[in-house]
Nucleic acid binder design. Structure first.
Lengths: 212, 212
DNA sequence: TAGTTTTGGAGAGTAGTACTATCCAAAACA
DNA sequence: TGTTTTGGATAGTACTACTCTCCAAAACTA
C-alpha cells in the first residue's frame, strides 16, 4: 500500500508518518521509483506499536526507538527485552546522595531482600521506588515496610500473570511484541484500576460525614 | 525566613520560586516592605508538595494548581478531594467512538459491575482503563476478563490500605495533604513494584534458554 | 495527452511546558 | 558607603512532537 493508505488505515497523518520515517522509527517502504514507495502490513503493525507506546506509555520517541531496536534484535532474550523496555520507560532522574536518600535506599534494599526477588542492583525500578519513598517522606508521609510488603504481594500476583501469558509456541515476532507491549502498557491498566479501587474504598469510607 | 533561605531549605532555585509565585502556585510571603517579604514554614511545606507533584507525579503545573486549590478549600470532603486529584492527574485524551472503543468500554463496565465497585460513570480512571484496553487490542493483545479480575483484586487490597491510613484524629491540614500525596504518588510506588515483580518473574521464567 | 493529485525528501515553523536569565530600584547588610 | 538581596517584570531557552510548505518526479484520470 502507499503512504496515504497506511495513513488511512492507521489513523496517523502522512506528515507524522514521514516524521517517523525521518526519525527512523519506521523502516523505509520498498521503493518502486525515485519518488514512490509501497508499505507492507508490517509497517502498519509497527506504526500501531509506535502509537501505542506514544499514547499508552507516554514514552519519548528516542526511547521508543530503543525499544524497537531491541524488538528487532533477533538475538535478544526475552528477559533482556523486558529489561530494555523498563529502562526505556523510566525517566532519567538525578541520583541523590544524602541521608534521606540512603535511608530510602535501605528500605528498598530490605524489601527486596525480604521478598527474595531477583532484581538487578541497576534496575531502574529500584531507583524509582527509592525516589518515590523519598518524595513521600518530604511531604510528611513515611512509607512503612508493611505498606511496601502489601503492595509487593499484590503486584507479584499481577506480574506472574503478565509473564505467564508469554506463549512459547507462538512466532517469535509475536512473542517479542507481546513482551514489549505488556511491559509498557499493563502499568497503565494497573494504575487505572488502582485509582478505581481507591475511589471505591473512598466512597465507602471518606464520603460525606466520614471525613473527621 | 527570606526567599534565599526558603530556596536553600527547599532546594528550589529562587528564580523557580518566583515563577511559582507568579503562577500563583505559592502564596505571597508576608510583605515587610515594598521590596521585601518573609516566608513561613507553610511556604516551605507547600513548595515541597509542589515539587513532589511535579517530580513524583509528573503533574502539569496548571493541574497542580487545581489540586492545591482543592486542598485549600476548607469545605471539601475527602472523597471529593481524592476525585479532584485523580482528575488532575489524568491527561485529557480524546474520546473515541467506534466499535473497538465500545467493546472496551463494555469490558470496563462489566468488570466494575462484577466487582460492585462504587465508581462514578465520569471517573477519569474508567476512561483510562478503557483506553488502555483499546491500545493493547490495537497491538494484538486482548485483555481478557480474568486478567482484569486478577489485577482488580490485587489493587483493591492496596487501596484499602491507602485509604485505611487516613487518620481522622489528625489535624485537617495534615489529612488533606496525606490524601493528596497518597493519591498522587502511591501510583508510582505501585508501578515501580510492578516492574520489580515483573523482573523477578521474568528472571525465573524468561531468562536465557527459557525463551522458546 | 494534459491537467490534477500523490509521492519522497528536505527544511522551517508551531505549540506547549517549565523553567532560567536579566534588569532595575528599593531595602538590607556589613 | 559599598555590596548584596529582594520583588517584580520581562524576555529568553531548551525540549518535545509534531505540522506545514515547497519542489520535482511519478501516478492517476478524463
Amino acid at each position: 500500500m502507499r503512504i496515504s493508505e497506511l495513513s488511512r488505515r492507521s489513523g496517523v497523518p502522512v506528515a507524522t508518518i514521514k516524521y517517523y520515517l525521518r526519525e527512523e522509527l519506521l523502516p523505509k517502504g520498498e521503493a518502486t521509483s525515485a519518488t514512490q514507495a509501497v508499505y507492507s502490513d508490517a509497517h502498519l503493525r509497527r506504526l500501531r506499536l509506535i502509537r501505542a507506546l506514544v499514547e499508552g506509555a507516554e514514552a519519548p520517541l528516542a526511547k521508543i526507538r530503543t525499544i524497537l531496536e531491541a524488538i528487532d534484535d533477533t538475538g535478544i532474550d526475552l528477559h533482556r527485552l523486558l529489561g530494555t523496555v523498563q529502562y526505556a520507560l523510566t525517566p532519567d532522574t538525578p541520583h541523590n546522595d544524602g541521608p534521606e536518600w540512603r535511608e530510602a535506599e535501605r528500605s528498598t534494599d530490605e524489601l527486596l531482600a525480604r521478598l527474595g526477588w531477583r532484581v538487578s542492583p541497576l534496575s531502574p525500578a529500584r531507583h524509582q521506588l527509592t525516589r518515590t519513598i523519598v518524595t513521600l517522606a518530604r511531604v510528611g508521609y513515611q512509607v512503612d515496610p508493611q505498606t511496601l510488603d502489601l503492595y509487593a504481594e499484590a503486584v507479584h500476583t499481577a506480574a506472574e500473570h503478565d509473564v505467564g501469558r508469554v506463549d512459547p509456541a507462538a512466532p517469535r515476532e509475536q512473542v517479542v511484541e507481546y513482551v514489549a507491549a505488556m511491559t509498557a502498557l499493563m502499568d497503565q491498566a494497573l494504575v487505572s484500576l488502582h485509582r478505581l479501587a481507591q475511589e471505591d474504598v473512598s466512597a465507602r469510607r471518606l464520603r460525606g460525614g466520614a471525613d473527621c
